[in-house]
Design a protein around this nucleic acid. Structure first.
Lengths: 143, 143
DNA sequence: CTGTATCCTATATGATACTG
DNA sequence: CAGTATCATATAGGATACAG
């Protein structure tokens, strides 16, 4: 059928421009860290809730608490993805209520390091970004 | 009305956990670079389509071509956001068909630098990530 | 050429209920 | 505790048509 012109066309085109930008590994990487909770999960496992400690394993419930409003669904999904990518390990201990801990792999720790670098930029420049945003808003009172 | 319990509750909770994780500037930064086309736009303006050149101004139509499948809507929206954040400048030249060029500001160039660092991680490790992903899939033939 | 406005759908994500 | 399954919905994002 040629009925789903829209969807089909979009999918075809997608294949094209993915290929075109395939030389940018950042494309795939961004697809991964763009997930709403991925970076936060990596941060939590990589340096705790204050984003300033050392890597350490955490239980599902701890992660859920640290990432506050995250739903079970999203947390599970995020953890499964990161596990599949080899960025963290999932360890089940058959205690009375089962205990599951998540811990960054070396690969996960290295990505966390890269993310920290980006965070460095943010710490230095986000003030400037926000002040730009505000002045833009003020600069358009006619709106 | 107290009808939109879901939406309202979510918004309230959101305020809470945003505050909780506010010590992570990466939170706001990620909100920005998580936009599907932001990183690609910064890459294009920062180092061209091959992600390996020097920063240079580009016209709307050039960006549209480089970011292949991007829609006008998304490209415009992305550019407006980046402009509002002071990451790039928009210059209109009143030629016959109007000419508009976009160029990274110093701030934008510096962010591009940070993103390049992340790209460095990707270049080194994405192979590993993908091989992990594949072996996971193969490891579950029962599915 | 460079947008703006509108509509429409896919997707992401949350709420809820249920399970080992 | 740590999920899984299902349903509901907000939002992002694309298609299309129009405009300066």
């Amino acid at each position: 059928m040629t009925t789903q012109t829209a969807a089909d066309a979009r999918r075809d085109t997608a294949a094209e421009y993915n290929a075109f930008l395939a030389n940018c590994p950042s494309r795939q990487l961004l697809d991964r860290i763009s997930d709403k909770w991925v970076a936060l999960t990596l941060s939590a496992l990589g340096s705790g809730p204050d984003c300033d400690g050392d890597p350490r394993p955490l239980r599902f419930s701890e992660l859920r608490r640290i990432l506050a409003g995250v739903s079970q669904k999203m947390l599970t999904q995020t953890l499964r993805n990161l596990e599949a990518d080899g960025l963290l390990t999932r360890t089940v201990t058959a205690t009375v209520p089962v205990t599951v801990t998540y811990e960054l792999t070396d690969l996960g720790v290295s990505l966390h390091g890269a993310i920290r670098a980006l965070k460095g930029w943010a710490e230095q420049h986000m003030d400037e970004v926000f002040s730009n945003r505000t002045s833009q808003a003020v600069a358009c009172p006619a709106g």
